[in-house]
Simulated scan of single mutants.
Amino acid sequence: MAEKTVLIVGLEPTLIDFSDPAYGFVPGINAEKVKAGLDASENALKELGYAAEQCLIDFGDTAEAVLQKKLEQQHYDCVLIGAGVRVVESNFLLFEKVINVVHRHAPQARLCFNTQPDDTAESVRRWV
């Protein structure tokens, strides 16, 4: 059986203003820690036998186009949308846009959601 493919969608960490209390759901978080968490999640999925990769997006200027291009380049069995996109209230419209791009360009993909980088593999394994 072929490897199951997973796309991890998250905010580009260098664009996040971590002084904004909305991003305080993980204490002490910063761009380096977010990127390290994303990389660790991708590597953990690969160790479990998934073909995983990241798609880092901005807050909406190019997010839809970047995600659409990624989804058109490859078939994905699962798309994980990270907590930074989902749980921050000011990103509500971005989250809707992301969901609709996935629905339109990867309707076969299972959707899953993590709460923090270290539960990404568990989130994916629930559905794929």
Rank of each mutant, 00 (worst) to 15 (best):
A36G: 05
L80N: 05
Y50R: 06
L38I: 08
Q54G: 05
A51G: 07
L56A: 11
V101P: 09
L56M: 04
A22T: 07
V87R: 14
S19F: 14
E32H: 03
F25G: 11
L93E: 14
E64L: 10
A40I: 04
I99S: 04
D58T: 10
W127A: 03
G37H: 00
H103D: 12
K35E: 13
E42D: 03
H103L: 09
D17A: 13
V66Y: 03
L11I: 12
D17H: 01
A83K: 04
Q68R: 05
D17E: 10
E3S: 14
V102A: 11
S19W: 09
L93W: 05
A63K: 11
S123A: 03
R104S: 15
A83S: 11
A40P: 02
E42S: 01
L93M: 10
S123G: 03
L7N: 04
K46Q: 08
A52V: 01
K46E: 09
E53T: 06
K70F: 00
E89W: 06
K46T: 09
T62K: 10
H105P: 04
E42F: 00
E96D: 11
K70S: 09
M1L: 14
L67H: 01
Q54K: 12
V98C: 01
K35A: 08
L7K: 07
A44C: 06
G84T: 11
T115K: 06
T120K: 01
N100T: 07
V88S: 02
L15I: 09
E64G: 09
H75D: 15
L111C: 00
T62W: 10
C78F: 14
N43K: 08
L67F: 13
V102I: 15
P107F: 04
E12S: 13
W127D: 00
T5V: 05
L38S: 06
P27G: 08
F25I: 10
K33Y: 01
D39T: 07
P13Q: 14
A31T: 00
G49Y: 03
E89G: 14
P27D: 10
G82S: 09
G84S: 13
F18L: 07
E122A: 10
D61C: 06
F59G: 07
A44F: 05
K33R: 01
A31D: 02
S123L: 03
A36Q: 08
S19T: 15
E96Q: 11
V124K: 00
D61E: 10
L45T: 02
A51E: 10
R125M: 08
P21A: 09
E12W: 11
F95Q: 05
L56K: 11
N43E: 13
